[in-house]
């Protein structure tokens, strides 16, 4: 059984900030790390590989600058068998549609796969939408928000999706795509031994010319229907009340306001 996991490198700390006064960036080039949700996707895939038996493999794919080889190597240290990076200047400025299209082209180059596993969302985009769009480009069914893999069969996989009001167990035939929740399985730590033993393993670099559709107009900014018109710091609230004095005075003033606004009934 062949499984692919899509992974992404994200800023290590959550913040890229603009100074509201000057409109300039407070910080740039923060250290990067693997998207935390992807660790669960890799763990789920490794357990599926174990359940599926011999000749099963886990491949990881990341789209981004060459620096994201680091997260591919981290996946190797967790136990992934092979990995590739989609990188090309033409991919820059990709929105959800173009990111998922580019990934689908990468899947075409590396695949076919029986199963594709994505983390539920990334911590820098927070959209949770690339996985379902990728499934559409590939024309395969998908199940989002998977909290448990119940059975790994020869032709299908059984999973439980976690919805706000109910849990739905369902069986999906291969090929298919799932996006997984945190908590599906505790991710193993990268192994130093594996990290060393895979240090010489080649990471495949895939550029525009390697893809079935190599028209640059179909990628990146040019192919993206959404355009960022501008970015700006969040509006700051004027007209707020600051309560002065020591803690007792501040607390008393706040209690007065809360009473006035009927919060103390």
């Amino acid at each position: 059984m062949k499984t692919l996991v899509c992974i992404k490198q994200v800023p290590g700390t959550a913040q890229v900030e603009i100074d509201p006064q000057t409109g300039t960036l407070k910080r740039a080039g923060v250290p990067a790390k693997m998207n935390p949700f992807d660790l669960y996707a890799i763990e789920a895939a490794l357990r599926i590989r174990a359940a599926a038996g011999p000749d099963s493999t886990v491949t990881v794919l990341s789209m981004g600058p060459p620096q994201c080889e680091k997260v591919v190597r981290e996946a190797f240290a967790m136990g992934a068998d092979s990995g590739a990076i989609l990188t090309d200047r033409a991919f820059g400025g990709a929105d959800v549609l173009m990111t998922s299209f580019t990934l689908s082209q990468g899947v075409g180059k590396l695949g076919p796969f029986d199963l594709i596993v994505c983390g539920k969302q990334t911590t820098d985009g927070d959209t949770a939408q690339v996985g379902p769009e990728l499934a559409e480009w590939l024309g395969i069914p998908h199940v989002a928000c998977v909290k448990a893999v119940d059975a790994v069969g020869a032709d299908s996989i059984s999973v439980t999706a976690d919805l706000p009001d109910r849990e739905v167990s369902q069986r999906v035939p291969y090929p298919c795509l799932i996006t997984v929740e945190k908590g599906i399985a505790e991710p193993r730590l990268p192994s130093y031994k594996l990290f060393k033993s895979t240090a010489a393993r080649k990471v495949e670099y895939i550029g525009l010319a390697d893809l079935a559709d190599s028209d640059p107009k179909h990628y990146g900014l040019n192919g993206s229907p959404t355009q960022v018109k501008r970015i700006f710091p969040p509006p700051s609230g004027a007209g707020r009340t600051m309560l002065e004095g020591d803690a007792a005075a501040q607390a008393a003033a706040l209690a007065d306001i809360l009473e006035e606004r009927n919060f103390l009934r």
Binding site: P11, V16, D124, G125, T226, Q227, V228, K229, P233, P234
Partner: peptide
């Protein structure tokens, strides 16, 4: 956007 203290206006 971008997980940071930035708002994006998108069309």
């Amino acid at each position: 956007a971008y997980g940071g203290n930035i708002m994006a206006h998108i069309n």
